[in-house]
């Protein structure tokens, strides 16, 4: 049961990574990147490293998304 959930999480991770690279709308890409970081944080927890999981949730899903949002608000939303 737990292994199935882990495989599901890893599949979601791969799908998120591919979609982030292919999305033209940078705001959507930022939100998908936040979801990627959140799933990555759960996977770190499953790998018994809660310290890295906390840091990933704070940096990846929190600070990096906000910095990307700030960068988008200073430039443009769409990739040409």
């Amino acid at each position: 049961m737990l292994a199935a959930i882990n495989v599901l999480l890893l599949l979601f991770l791969v799908v998120c990574a591919v979609v982030v690279a292919r999305t033209k709308d940078l705001l959507s890409a930022t939100v998908i990147f936040g979801a990627y970081s959140m799933v990555m944080s759960i996977i770190w927890q499953q790998l018994h490293s809660p310290d890295v999981a906390i840091t990933e949730a704070a940096i990846g899903a929190g600070a990096t998304s906000l910095l990307f949002l700030a960068a988008i608000s200073r430039t443009g939303r769409h990739e040409e």
């Binding site: 310290d51 999981a53 906390i54 840091t55 704070a58 929190g62 600070a63 906000l66």
Partner: peptide, 28 residues
């Protein structure tokens, strides 16, 4: 997370980032 850095997972970097994110939210 900051105050329990030497007892449980977490520490200066993780706790500092979470507090910094709250400051960012405030200024946003």
């Amino acid at each position: 997370i900051l105050f329990h850095g030497h007892l449980s997972p977490g520490g200066g970097f993780s706790g500092g980032t979470i507090i910094g994110a709250s400051f960012i939210l405030y200024s946003l």
